[in-house]
Design a protein around this nucleic acid. Structure first.
Length: 422
RNA sequence: GGACGGGUGGGUGAGCGGUUAAAACCAGCAGACUGUAAAUCUGCCGCUCCUUGCGGGCUACGGAGGUUCGAAUCCUCCCCCGUCCA
């Protein structure tokens, strides 16, 4: 049953890719050595609060690191902070945020797990919920827990200090967050905990509290924050600079192609398993002009798409991208919308249009292919609208739906669709 | 509880009685250019209707009233947010 672990140096190299900090590094080496000798895998965990219903590539950076440990034969524990999500992690928050309800948390947990297993091997992952033990803590337990940490230490953290200085409120329950989540580490008896760099404070508290409870104290491993598509700020849904992992292959591919050449290296580092040495060689080849940056970026995009949609979908997305953006041709397949003629009017799934010959701008809005008539009019006026490869730039132009037919439409540079009148 | 300051379009934020559908910036969209949905440049950017005209109508500056020929701009009340003092 004991499995053979790779030599420690090899493991460290694999684990070290893309990492921001390992605290303390020597301890990780020792743990790996002990584990290799005894044949006992390390217990490595990642705690995630299910605060939003879906995850994007930014979240996968740490997940991928957890997978690396899993690849090496260690035990990956995916901890869902269903209890702690109801408190709210003060990390990076400039203000107290509203706690989530039990229902929201449960719903989010479900969608999270489905998405997480696109990266982790479900068979080998230990999934836990921190309500398992946190629900059971008595007031007495909590008071004792609080006795093990000092206020001054707590206030050292940047979030709290700056809020305090600016006179912004800090709710007392926020102080409890790192302490309660420390109980996760205590209960799971973990050897390593992963987190983004902004989690460093929490991870260190966990390590200390573990020791207070007579455990060895875990190693904290942090991963850099993934920069968003804009190349400026951290990837986040609210900034709109993200790639969701449930997005369709084409959208994913296109979004990834829009990153700058420079940013692409960081994505290679954090979002793929390409070994460090290979990456350095690739980068050198691009710099010497041996490899074309666009080509290399397309490989990156294909790799990432393949992680979530499979190799075949990735290849198709790449082909589609070439076709539509490089060769400026219509895509091989486009979404179809069917219209039916009835009682001297056109109808479609969304409702009745009212005439057989609507203006294009209105038709597009009615079919919800455009936000509003005004937006569609603008698109047409600006030369972004083609019907069967012919430019239509008269905003008053009408669509003739009086006879059956098929029309290929281009809306701007990204959107294509086929209109079929039956 | 008291004293101030503030709530404007997707965001930040000007305007403080009329040519203000509301500056500027960001985001977004289109076109040009490009190896790319990068960068850059140009234009657009409330909704809607038609006979597409520097056309018509509607909605909009926290909410409700009021003053005025005319209000995002002045007044009253209400709601919300922030700061300071307790």
């Amino acid at each position: 049953m004991t499995q053979a672990f790779q030599p420690v140096d090899a493991q460290l190299e694999y684990i070290g890719k893309g990492v921001a900090e390992i605290i303390p590094e020597t301890e990780l080496r020792e743990k790996l050595e002990t584990s290799r000798k005894s044949g006992k895998p390390l217990r490595v965990y990642l705690g995630v609060d299910p605060t939003a219903p879906d995850i994007h590539l930014g979240h996968t950076v740490v997940l991928r690191k957890l997978k690396h440990f899993q690849d090496l034969g260690h035990t990956a524990i995916f901890l869902i902070g269903d209890f702690s999500a109801m408190i709210g992690d003060p990390t990076g928050q400039s203000e107290t945020r509203p706690p989530l309800s039990r229902e929201e948390v449960d719903a989010n947990s479900k969608t999270y797990l489905a998405q997480v297993f696109k990266i982790l091997d479900q068979q080998k992952t230990e999934v836990r919920y921190n309500s398992e033990w946190l629900d059971k803590q008595s007031s007495y337990d909590i008071v004792r827990l609080c006795g093990r940490y000092r206020l001054a230490r707590m206030l050292e953290r940047e979030d709290f200090r700056s809020r305090l200085e600016k006179g912004q409120p800090i709710s007392v329950h926020e102080l409890l967050y790192p302490l309660l989540t420390a109980l996760d580490a205590v209960n799971l008896k973990t050897d390593v905990e992963l987190g983004a760099t902004e989690q460093k404070f929490n991870l260190l508290v966990h390590r200390e509290i573990q020791r207070e409870y007579g455990l060895p104290g875990e190693v904290a491993l942090t991963m850099p924050i993934l920069v968003g598509l804009d190349g400026q700020r951290k990837m986040s849904k609210s900034l709109g600079n993200y790639v969701g992992i449930t997005e369709p292959p084409d959208a994913m591919f296109g979004k990834l192609m829009s990153i700058s050449d420079e940013l692409m290296w960081s994505y290679y580092d954090l979002l793929t398993d390409v070994p460090v040495a290979e990456l350095l060689a690739l980068r050198a080849a691009v710099e010497r002009g041996v490899r074309h940056p666009m080509e290399v970026k397309m490989e990156l995009a294909a790799r990432i798409v393949a992680d979530f949609h499979g190799a075949k979908a990735a290849a198709q997305a790449a082909e589609q991208f070439q076709r539509v953006f490089r060769d400026r041709a219509a895509p091989a397949e486009m979404p179809e919308i069917r219209l039916f003629r009835r009682n001297g009017s056109l109808e479609h799934a969304e409702g009745v249009i009212g005439t057989l010959t609507p203006k294009w701008c209105q038709l597009l809005a009615y079919l919800r292919q455009s936000e509003s008539v005004a937006v569609a009019t603008r698109l047409i006026e600006q030369g972004g609208f083609e019907v069967n490869n012919r430019l239509v730039d008269d905003p008053a132009a009408r669509f003739d739906g009086s006879a059956p037919g098929s029309y290929d439409l281009r809306l701007g540079k990204k959107k294509y669709l086929r209109l079929i009148v039956e």
